[in-house]
Design a protein around this nucleic acid. Structure first.
Lengths: 241, 241
DNA sequence: CTTCTAAGTGTATATAATACAATAAACGTA
DNA sequence: TACGTTTATTGTATTATATACACTTAGAAG
């Protein structure tokens, strides 16, 4: 019973319109006739090596898939699916792939945040694509449970920590930031009230720079200052029971 | 390489004065001369059985230790300590106990909440005691990291969900509830403002019953109604960035 | 009946949340 | 070059919540 622990990465990307998640189309074809045995979607995961930290394993999975390093990664839970690999589709895949059916017991979930704009993905031959989170209906194994848990954790985090910037390019407009909150939290926000609120975040730096090439009044660009954030961060203790 | 996954339970108890945690004094004596080889403190943990869910394993650890069931349990993280069992004290224990030094890689942390008043603990021969959280300075393995993480998770949770009641007996006074918040969050709260705030929680039910045997004006007793909570729970979405 | 102790309660002020609409800047096109 | 289209930007009035603060009351003990 080897390799009982894996990490699964829920890689979120924002494209200014919707929240996406990176999924692997795990299609498998018959070696003889090329017939597609089945096709389904999974999160990206991998086993952890001996003497490798969980965090490292997650970063490795992300790097292997995208070639990106120093990406925001947050652990959001450990999962064990008693019914894992028990579903017909998964069993078919097991038979076809020759994997050990008992090879995965526990998986530790990490979500990571990317601006899709920033990413030129190196797929290394795997069939990987962005899918709008709102349209993902079914995933292999218990990955749907894991995805929902990741989304819940992301929402929670977004409400209390300045992690939205991880989903945006370095320079962004306030409307883009607002849209990000609206999309992730699935709410509509008033433009003026939103700006009043974020005006209090000192770590949001207004640049002397504007959007270019847009067919309307160009928006001012802003950036996030981690330095200012670290300095002005007060111990968050709202006591809003 | 078997049994690579364990759960560790951080068992919090509240005694109306301070927050306590249940720790095992892992003292080990020489079989020949009865000399104490060392003594240190650990959280309570155990390996997970095959085909056992993480949640079940945590509940089992709690039950084995205390004889209690249906206790509030919350997963707060997965940990892997690369330096685990590398410290001199832990190595001494390893040699003395004859355990496999590689036997634990990952541990999944759960915290549980108890009113110490409610508990008559069945130690099953183990050397287990309540320790004030604020006085715990050093634990074996990476258990100090895990305890700090549990406390952080508990604080976060306490601010947003009605879990404080899990740390109180069924009937309690408002002053006890306030003290609980003060102790766990390490703040001082104004009595009147606190009561104004919790007056909004409909699931806090005032009973027609008072404290007895106290040498001052007796306080009214309250209880928590899970039913009312479930019904009146609005999707918490403060958008307090 | 006096003392001791913690329980219980209200008001004024400051801060934050919400609801709501007109003007400005860039581009494309007639 | 005037006009239409599109999104950016800004303020005020109202309501709700947060905070600061001190006296009276009920029971027990002596």
């Amino acid at each position: 019973m080897n390799n009982t622990i894996s990490v699964d990465c829920v890689i979120f990307g924002f494209d200014f319109e919707k929240l996406n998640v990176l999924l692997v189309d795990r299609e498998l074809k018959d070696e003889n006739n090329g017939e597609e045995l089945f096709s389904d979607l999974t999160l990206t995961g991998n086993h952890i090596f001996e003497n490798e930290s969980l965090e490292n394993a997650a970063a490795r999975v992300l790097f292997d898939l995208t070639g990106l390093e120093n990406i925001y990664l947050k652990q959001f839970g450990a999962f064990c699916d008693p019914g894992r690999l028990k579903r017909p589709n998964d069993q078919a895949w097991l038979r076809a792939s020759g994997r050990d059916p008992e090879s995965r017991i526990i998986s530790v979930g990490y979500y990571s945040l990317l601006a899709t704009e920033n990413v030129t993905l190196k797929w290394k031959g795997r069939n990987v694509k962005w899918y709008p989170v709102s349209e993902v209906k079914d995933l292999a194994f218990d990955h749907m449970v894991i995805l929902k848990s990741a989304l819940q954790a992301l929402r929670r985090e977004l409400l209390h920590e300045p992690i939205g910037f991880e989903l945006l390019p370095e320079k962004f407009t306030l409307s883009q930031l607002q849209k990000l909150y609206e999309v992730v939290l699935d709410v509509e926000l008033d433009k003026r009230n939103f700006r009043k609120k974020i005006a209090r975040m000192k770590y949001l730096i207004a640049l002397d720079e504007k959007q270019k090439g847009v067919a309307h009044k160009p928006a001012r660009l802003y950036m996030f200052s981690r330095e200012v954030y670290e300095k002005t961060r007060k111990e968050v203790l709202d006591f809003n029971i």
